[in-house]
C-alpha cells in the first residue's frame, strides 16, 4: 500500500513551521499540478524541492544529493562493465 511519486514544489502556502494552519503546497510533474498537504513533512519545503507524494500528502523531501550519488555509481558500474 505504498504508491507514492516524486513531484516538484512550485508554490507553498500556510505559515512556515505552523502545521495547524492548513499547510499546502502545489506540486508539479510533467505538466500536471496537484495540491498536496504538508502536515507530515519533517522539514518545511522550498520551491524546487521534490516531495514524495502519497494519497495527497507529502511524506518526505526527496534527497537529491543522495539520488545523484547513487545514480553516478550505477552509471559508472554500467560503463565499467561494457
Amino acid at each position: 500500500m505504498c504508491l507514492a511519486v516524486p513531484m516538484r514544489v512550485i508554490r507553498v502556502s500556510g505559515l512556515e513551521g505552523d502545521f495547524t494552519l492548513t499547510p499546502l503546497a502545489v506540486v508539479e510533474a510533467q505538466g500536471i499540478e496537484k495540491d498536496v498537504r504538508l502536515d507530515l513533512v519533517d522539514q518545511w519545503p522550498e520551491i524546487g524541492d521534490y516531495l514524495i507524494i502519497h494519497a495527497g500528502f507529502a511524506i518526505h523531501t526527496l534527497d537529491e544529493k543522495e539520488a545523484e550519488i547513487n545514480l553516478k555509481l550505477l552509471r559508472e558500474m554500467a560503463e565499467g562493465l561494457k
Binding site: 504508491l3 511519486v5 510533474a29 510533467q30 505538466g31 496537484k34
Partner: peptide, 12 residues
C-alpha cells in the same frame, strides 16, 4: 502524452 503518463503514475 507526458501529462497522461504523469497522471497515471500519480493515480496508479
Amino acid at each position: 502524452h507526458k501529462e497522461v503518463d504523469a497522471a497515471c503514475e500519480i493515480l496508479g
